[in-house]
Amino acid sequence: MSQFQIYGLASVLIFSIGLYGFIVHPHLVRKILAMNIMSSGIFLLLVSAARRDMHAIPDPVPHAMVLTGIVVSVSMTAFALALTRRVVAATGVAALLWMDAPVEAAPIAARNDEHSRDLDRVADPVAADRDDIHLSV
């Protein structure tokens, strides 16, 4: 088993763990974390694929692509986190709501009315942060 195959196996594992987390967890911050784990797997693959031949000079193009990718992934994370805070401010829950949400339907609806009156007067983020802990899976 060559060195690249070990790195390849590791990056596929990391990507799959991220993908599983992205699908399974409804909490938006967990989804953002999962997306970052997925991109870490992709970056690991690109960096290791640049040096498959251990005696040659590593290919600089994938390395530059990873640098670019990191900045794009940071931008994406920042925007996703801001969107999450907006969702929490508007609905009180750090998850995407479904019409037929069975258990939380009543309290969420109540919160919704309370917040929809002044959607632009945003809720206190700290209080909102505390609320989203109660979100059950």
Binding site: L9, S11, V12, F15, R52, P60
Partner: peptide
């Protein structure tokens, strides 16, 4: 996800040892 990961792994392992890069 496991099935998807197995396919991904096959694709990664199948990469040629001598890369065709821009080095």
């Amino acid at each position: 996800v496991t099935i998807f990961g197995i396919f991904l792994l096959q694709a990664v392992i199948a990469l040629p040892a001598q890369p065709v890069g821009l080095t």
